[in-house]
Structures are given as C-alpha cells and as structure tokens.
Amino acid sequence: MSIKKRGETWHIDIVAPDGSRIRRSTGTPEKRKAQEYHDKLKHELWAVTKLNKRPTRIFEEAIILMLRDSEHQARFDYKQAHAEYFLSIFSGRDLSSITGEELTNSIPDFHAITKKPIANGTKNRYRSTILRVFSLAYKMNWIDGVPYIPRFSEPKVKVSWITKEKANMLIHHLKLNWMKDVCFFALSTGARMSEILSLTWANVDFVNKIAKVTEDNAKSGRARALLLNSDAIDLLRKLRFKNHCGFVFTRSTNKRVYDIDRRDFKNACELAGIEKFTFHDLRHTWASWHAQAGTPLYTLQNLGGWETLEMVKKYAHLNADHMLKFADNVTFTAQSQSKDTMKNVSNY
C-alpha cells in the first residue's frame, strides 16, 4: 500500500518511474491531504523522468546538505541548533517555494529559553546559516537562485588594546600562575583562547618554532601553524620541565585547563586600571603591536590565521608610516610659493 498511517501521521511509499523508492512522512494526520500529497509527488516524479523536469527538493534535504558541509568546522553545535530552529518552521516545505520575505521574518527576535531580545550580531549568525543552506542548494541546481535576506546592522567593532606597560601590569596582578602563563602566551602569539587551551605537547615543534593548531580547534575548521617568537619559546621550555600532562597549559594539579579564570582576569584588569577589556582583547593587543611595529597587513593576516584581509584592516590605522613618503606629493603651500616665484621671475 502506497499510503500508510504510522501513529497519528500518514506516510507514503512510492516507486518512481526510474525504479527508485521514496518513503517519507506527509506531515498530516488527515488521509485526504496525505492522498493529495501522494498524488502530487507521484505526478512530479513522472514529470522529472518523462519531461526532464527539475525534481522537487524539500527543506530537510537542504539542511542535511548544510550540516554535512559544516560538520568539521568550529562551533558546529551552533549550526545544529540553527538547523533545528529552522526545521521547526519550514519542515516539509518545497525548497523553491520559500521566499526571502519568509526567511527574513523567520529570524528570531527573542531567545527561546530566556525570552531576552537577541542582538543583531546573533541574528546575523542565523542569517548566515540559512543563506548557506540555500547557497548550497543553488550550487546543486536544486533552486533557481538564493533568496535575499537583508543583513541586520551591527555597531562598529572598536579595537581594544593595551600598551606593553599595561600588559605587564595585568600579568603582574594575576594571582594564578597558570593564568599568567596563558595570558603571556596570548600576548606573545595572538592565539585564540580555544587554540591555547587545546594545545598539546605533541603539536609543539621547538626546532621550527611553530605550534600546530589542529582543524578541530581552529576557528576556520582548517589546521594552521602558530608561529612562536622567542618569548613564547622560553615560556614553553619552562613549562615543559614541570608539566607532566599531554596538554601544555594546566592547573597546579597538573589537570587540563578548559576555561580561563574570569574572576582572576577581571580583578587583574581592575588593579591594572584597564577598563572594558576581555581575554580576546589580548589577541587584538598582539595584532596592534604588530601593526605599530610595521608588520604588513597581509603578513599579519597569515600570522593571526584570519580568513580575509578585510578582518585585519581594522589595525591599519595604527601605523601609517608606509604612506608618509607619499604625503608631500600634493602640498598647497609649496605649490603656491612656486607659482609666486615664477611670477616674480617673469616680471624681471
């Protein structure tokens, strides 16, 4: 039988003209609607085979495509949560029937549990996920185009960084020795928190002065080499003698560190007179120091493991030395004086 009820919902079992078998839920407890869905799908399958018509793809298929594409990326749990959310809205829908207006209106305004308003930055992450769903479907020729979803405006990110003097004060005021080591390493390498706390001795190469950030721990989902300067090398050598754990950064109990001590970090910032500063700002500080020292932005991009050069341009204003030689190419005063001189000469 091609239509069968399972629990409260009717399911279909169809053999397509090409011999393939399709089994799926109709999503309805009403037999009449299930029969209509069955007949429509059977007609479409015939049209696909006989008239070379594009097959209908349902929303779930595109979601699976996106999840498979991103399963090895960092924060895959976010993508899974987003997929579950959008499935609750568009499950069972023909992919090509979903409009940009519907997708825009589906972006949540409030957190499902806390009921608090969702920031525009979070909304844009939902937007990015659903756009990726339709972008992959378009690349697979499942739909004619990617629906338009306007981006939510976000406040411009202000780069927070501190001087080397303030950085020394910050580390001095940290109470926990392992926190001193973690922060010192962050300032020496620009590594992200997840990259630091997941670093193992097996991925530290003292000879070539690099530490490997594995694809599991890299934000981009791709492995990269973390270059170690002399400060970082000296710290790692010191830790190697007293560390008997597979992970580089451990507590005094020789147990792996999964998160920084935020209270210790906050107190140290207050004692050092540093306001509105987070652990991630240590990475901004490292990048700012590089920009001030004249490191080219393209080189800085590779050193820090940023995906695009655009992400590094926020540090460009910290060093304009490379443009100073062009500043005198156009000067109003010098040109005016030159004209006056030529005029005086002509009067003779």
Rank of each mutant, 00 (worst) to 15 (best):
R192S: 09
A293H: 04
D259W: 00
P29Q: 05
M66D: 07
G27P: 08
L174V: 08
R263F: 01
H172Y: 01
A191E: 00
G221L: 03
L41R: 05
Q301D: 04
K4F: 03
T285H: 07
K123H: 06
K266W: 04
F241Y: 08
L239E: 09
M179T: 07
A218M: 03
L297N: 10
F90I: 13
K343Y: 05
Q292H: 08
H82D: 13
A112N: 10
I130L: 04
F241W: 01
H280F: 10
I196D: 02
V345T: 11
T299W: 02
G100S: 12
E310W: 00
R68S: 13
A81D: 15
G305M: 01
N141L: 01
I58W: 04
I196W: 03
L174C: 09
T295H: 05
Y148S: 15
R68F: 10
N229G: 09
L176N: 05
A112P: 10
H172M: 06
D328W: 00
G19E: 06
P296S: 07
K31Y: 10
D281R: 11
V159T: 15
L228P: 07
K238A: 05
Q73I: 05
K123M: 09
L45F: 03
K339T: 12
M193H: 09
K266Q: 11
S96T: 13
V257A: 02
E84N: 15
T129K: 02
A211P: 13
F249P: 01
I210K: 10
A293I: 04
I210P: 09
V146A: 11
L239V: 06
T189G: 07
P108S: 08
L235S: 14
A293K: 08
L170Y: 04
T214P: 06
N319M: 02
Q35I: 09
R6C: 06
N344C: 06
L324A: 10
P117A: 03
L197A: 05
V146K: 15
G246C: 00
F247R: 07
N217M: 01
R283E: 09
Y37R: 12
Y138M: 05
I260K: 02
K123W: 01
V207Y: 07
T9M: 06
L236T: 13
E8W: 00
A268T: 09
K325P: 00
L136P: 15
T114A: 05
V330D: 10
H82Y: 15
L239K: 12
Q337W: 00
S96F: 01
L187I: 08
W178C: 12
F277Y: 08
I210C: 11
R6A: 09
T26L: 03
Y298H: 12
V213S: 04
L174A: 12
W10H: 05
K79H: 12
I107A: 11
I98C: 13
P55T: 08
D261Y: 02
Y85V: 12
S230I: 02
H317T: 14
V159R: 03
K115C: 10
H38M: 04
N254P: 03
T333Y: 08
F185P: 13
E71V: 05
T331V: 03
T214M: 02
I3T: 09
Y37Q: 12
F184W: 01
F241I: 11
K276R: 13
H173W: 00
V157T: 15
I22W: 01
D109P: 01
Y126P: 10
E30T: 11
T163M: 04
V207N: 14
Y298R: 07
G304R: 03
G145H: 14
N319R: 08
V248C: 06
G19M: 00
G305S: 06
G27N: 06
L65M: 15
V312D: 13
